[in-house]
């Protein structure tokens, strides 16, 4: 397909948590690629394994969680089997990360400039003064006005949106190839959300950075992502181009998610919702994990677990796809 290896390539990744009651599989056999300059959205409800996937990629799973199988490749090179020490220079330098809550992502006791300079000097061979100049450049680039002055301010002297810009600047310090943004806009006001999303999009377009955008907000995905992966109970149930997934989703769960986005031109004045809630990891149903909540489930769904199947330009893990494909081949 491509001559260059994708920036990030995840193959059959499994993340498990050993507990007293047995081992829980929180991320179950997921695979995806992200190319340079591409934004891959990862959506799903809380507990679907989105954030864990992000943590696994950057090697910051909280024990006892661990990568139990599969491969993670960054620029073609495996990183999931690296030692702690070998992984450290990759974090921040080649993979940048942005977290949900900008209010708690910055250390309250240090000036933002010190935190940026510290990160720059960890990864790049720059002196204090050059690092400071670069920090000012970065702050200006993420849209902080009067950066020469603001660099000496403390985190609490910034608003939430401004702090998220600082967090972005921190993630961009060493020009990483990949940014993992874990719910970067969830904690922000809607108007600020749009600004941050625009900023994120512009920065990756200009730098050709690959972005893994984790969110439960389909609106953010629709606006930002090139492709989207929908996760449910630790598995990817559908992955494909964002337009196709949003407009003609193949998996009933994805359709349910789409139905729960309010739209201005929508004719119905009620939002649809998916009945029930996602199963706990201790009680994943047999067959398709979604079958108890699925309005279209049939016998096969309750017995046999579907794998991802190609349909149009997407992949969907649903027996309906197989059935439709058999009955009316497109």
């Amino acid at each position: 397909m491509m001559a260059e290896p994708p920036v990030l390539s995840v193959r059959n990744l499994r993340v498990e948590f050993p507990t007293r009651r047995g081992t829980l599989l929180a991320v179950d056999d997921i695979s995806f690629d992200i190319a340079a300059g591409e934004v891959l959205g990862i959506v799903g409800e809380s507990g679907a394994g989105k954030s864990l996937t992000g943590s696994a990629i950057i090697g910051l799973l909280e024990p006892p969680g661990r990568v139990a199988g599969g491969e993670i490749r960054l620029g073609g090179r495996r990183i999931d089997n690296l030692s702690r020490e070998a992984m450290r220079p990759i974090r921040g330098k080649r993979i940048g990360m942005v977290f949900q809550d900008p209010l708690t992502s910055l250390n309250p006791l240090y000036r933002v400039g010190d935190q940026i300079i510290e990160t720059i000097r960890t990864h790049l061979p720059l002196g204090e003064r050059e690092a400071r100049a670069r920090a000012i450049e970065l702050l200006t680039e993420v849209g902080i006005q009067g950066a020469e002055r603001r660099i000496d301010a403390y985190p609490h002297e910034f608003s939430g949106g401004m702090r998220q810009r600082v967090v972005l600047a921190l993630a961009l310090c060493a020009e990483p190839e990949l940014i993992i943004a874990d719910e970067p806009t969830t904690a922000l006001d809607v108007s600020i959300q749009a600004q941050i999303i625009q900023l994120l999009k512009r920065l990756c377009r200009e730098r050709g950075t690959a972005v893994m955008l984790i969110t439960h907000d389909m609106g953010v995905i629709a606006e930002t992502a090139n492709r989207v992966a929908v996760m449910y109970a630790g598995r990817i149930v559908e992955i494909g181009p964002v337009r196709e997934v949003i407009q003609s989703a193949h998996h009933p769960y994805t359709r349910g998610l789409m139905g729960s986005i309010p739209s201005l031109e929508g004719t119905s004045d009620r939002l649809t919702q998916i009945p029930g809630s996602m199963p706990r990891l201790t009680a994943i149903p047999k067959g398709c994990a979604f079958n108890p909540r699925c309005p279209l489930a049939f016998d096969r769904c309750r017995v046999e677990r579907p794998d991802l199947m190609a349909v149009d330009h997407s992949l969907a893990a649903c027996w309906l796809v197989a059935r439709e494909g058999a009955e009316a081949p497109r």
Partner: peptide, 9 residues
């Protein structure tokens, strides 16, 4: 967590 994600020692 963020400090670790930034690759600090």
């Amino acid at each position: 967590k963020f400090a670790r994600a930034r690759g600090l020692s």
